[in-house]
Amino acid sequence: MNIDSIQNGIVIDHIRAGGAMELYRLLKLGKLDCPVAIIKNAPSGKMGKKDIIKIDSVSAIDMNLDVLGFVDPDATINVIKDGKLAGKKHAGLPERIENVLKCRNPRCITSVEPDLPQVFQLANRETKTYRCIYCEAKAELIK
């Protein structure tokens, strides 16, 4: 199977196998009008199987990828410029995740005021726990 190399954009590599669709949703990639490729279960020497997302757009280089650190901190981000690898970065754990995840606590103020920014703060780096800044409920991914 061949997926064309991209000219300018990003390749999110080493995504845990099966995790690409979740990332696609959280990063709101469905809203982009540039070419986006999802490769599932690609063979990987290190991981056995992995997913890859390629986004062919200059604007993708500056995308907010904070959530990646929460969902899949081992994923790597390759920045491609003029068809060449221009840089590599690890997602890491951001201090805050803004407007990506929704608080799922029905008692949280954000449940009745949808215009409030949805902000989660890193509460424990070891356990990768994020908490809503308003109600302190733990950030959860919708499975």
Partner: peptide, 22 residues
């Protein structure tokens, strides 16, 4: 609702005391 006084504090020009949020 939990966190409502914090939202208040973010926008207030006077001191806010949380008298209980959920």
């Amino acid at each position: 609702k939990e966190g409502a006084p914090m939202v208040g504090a973010m926008h207030s020009t006077v001191p806010i005391i949380n008298a209980g949020d959920g």
